[in-house]
Design a binder for these strands. Structure first.
Length: 467
DNA sequence: CACTAGTGCAA
DNA sequence: TATTGCACTAGTG
């Protein structure tokens, strides 16, 4: 600001224009205290979240949660996470050679060369040249997604080969190359951005690179995850909330059977299977547990019988029966969903346990699809958002405890229900205890929050810790 | 270079 | 016709 008014200290910290936004709403002298070195981040935050100040219930959320978190996230971003560059370079070479080989083989199967990364070109090969049956359409053409390719894989060898190729391609382009690019300088650490004002539920998001979607499920995925390592003399420590979303549902609904299961320390999917299939706890087969796990997730997302049937590959009638049994066994959940929808229709918004608000202007829409979407959001937001509230509380308390020297090390990442730390080898013991306790006590609920700890020399191979 | 569509990774 | 995100490639303008 070379010619205009001199900038105030707060403006210097958080950017021009911040004054009107913050000062009009309410004077917060402490903004400068919280403003971290990332001025742009703070400015966006103030701009986007300052309406919170006008709502009596949201003001503490803004001042005591979101503002202190700015500093913590800024620190995490600046510290970054170490990656094993030589390891990733080798992986890049291996995957490159593999992809090249598979590309040739697939084009031979197809009888012509084409761009394997083009769904449009692939559809021509699959459905015109090879005359395979069309499983599903997209709005512009014929679908070739994983679900479709799986259904085609007993009719021709190409679909399976293509699925394998896609996995390699995904891992190579989205992770291996992106991470090497992100750690290109003289430092072997990558620095994500934690976005505080993006997700409508109050979750964080991560970008450039996104470190909240590092693969873990496939074997190749775990090989990528292995590239995240601690600095010399340190370990990686991961602390994750066990079934946090379902615990939030249990607490908010107060459902007796669900709360009882959590209080007894039961495996919730096992308990659910036992309830809805009417078998004893020790008679639950892996298959019944798998179905129950799907239903539990589905409930959190506001699933339909159709959705469950698709997910499980069963008939709609069977899916309907499972859902019916679920609501009969967990009547408190049924009531909670009804009450939540009712208040959303009346007020036009829903809130998390700590009062975070999400407006749902389409909850009374005449359009069934639009309304249905708003209804699923109305159920999901209090659950997902309360989980986000809990881990944010934990992060703030942990940062405070760290200043008070209750533990040593550095918080590196937040992945929605997990915190990842870099801990000096000799500080492990006390630190573990503190982290677990602080996280589990983040919110006092009618059921316990449980945190599982793991540690290791990389983010893929971690050993469970017992205290 | 900006944008959309399809696809797929995570919690 | 299952929530919240981010990001890749192809394709279009």
């Amino acid at each position: 600001d070379l010619l205009g008014e001199p900038m105030t200290p707060i403006e210097q910290l958080i950017g021009k224009g911040a004054k009107q936004i913050t000062m009009d709403a309410v004077p917060i002298e402490d903004v400068s205290v919280y403003a971290c070195a990332d001025a742009d981040m703070t400015f966006r935050l103030v701009q986007k979240l300052s309406p919170m100040l006008e709502d009596k219930e949201l003001r503490p959320l803004f001042q005591d949660m979101e503002m202190p978190l700015v500093r913590i996230l800024g620190d995490m971003e600046r510290v970054g996470v170490r990656i094993d560059r030589p390891y990733l370079e080798a992986l890049r070479k291996e995957l490159h050679d593999l992809a090249t080989k598979m590309e040739k083989e697939i084009c031979q199967l197809a009888g012509e060369t084409f761009n394997l990364n083009s769904p449009k070109q692939l559809a021509v090969i699959l459905f015109e040249k090879l005359k395979l049956p069309v499983i599903r359409k997209t709005k512009t053409g014929l679908s070739t997604d994983e679900d479709v390719l799986t259904k085609l894989s007993d009719k021709h060898p190409l679909p399976k080969r293509l699925m394998d190729y896609r996995e390699i391609q995904k891992m190579q382009s989205t992770y291996v190359e992106a991470l090497l690019e992100a750690a290109k300088g003289d430092e072997d650490r990558v620095h994500t951005s934690f976005n505080q004002t993006v997700a409508a539920t109050g979750r964080l998001s991560s970008s450039s690179p996104n470190l909240q979607n590092i693969p873990i499920r496939s074997e190749l995925g775990r090989r990528i995850r292995r590239c995240f390592i601690p600095k010399a003399g340190h370990i990686l420590l991961s602390a994750d909330y066990s079934q946090i979303d379902l615990r939030m549902l249990a607490h908010m609904s107060g459902d007796e059977a669900m709360c009882r299961a959590f209080r007894a320390g039961e495996d919730i999917h096992n308990a659910t299977a036992s309830e809805i299939f009417g078998v004893k706890r020790d008679q639950v087969t892996p298959e019944l547990r798998r179905i129950s796990k799907s239903i539990n997730f589905g409930i959190v997302y506001g699933m339909s019988a159709f959705g469950l049937s698709q997910q499980l590959g069963i008939s709609r009638q069977d899916a309907e029966q499972h859902i019916k049994n679920y609501f009969e066994r967990y009547p408190g959940v049924t009531t909670w969903i009804e009450k939540t929808l009712e208040s959303a229709r009346k007020d036009g918004f829903v809130r998390t346990l700590l009062g975070r608000i999400r407006y749902l202007p389409e909850i009374n829409s005449q359009n069934g699809a639009v309304r249905g979407f708003a209804e699923r959001t109305a159920m999901n937001t209090p659950i997902q958002g309360t989980s986000a509230d809990a881990i944010k509380v934990a992060m703030i308390r942990l940062a405070k405890e760290q200043v008070e020297q209750r533990w040593r090390g550095t918080m590196l990442l937040q992945v929605h229900d997990e915190l990842v730390f870099e801990i000096p080898r000799d500080a492990a013991k006390d630190t573990q205890r503190t982290i677990k306790t602080v996280m589990e006590e983040a919110l006092k609920l009618s059921i316990p929050l449980v945190v599982d700890l793991k540690s290791g020399q990389n983010w893929a191979e971690m050993t469970a810790l017992k205290l």
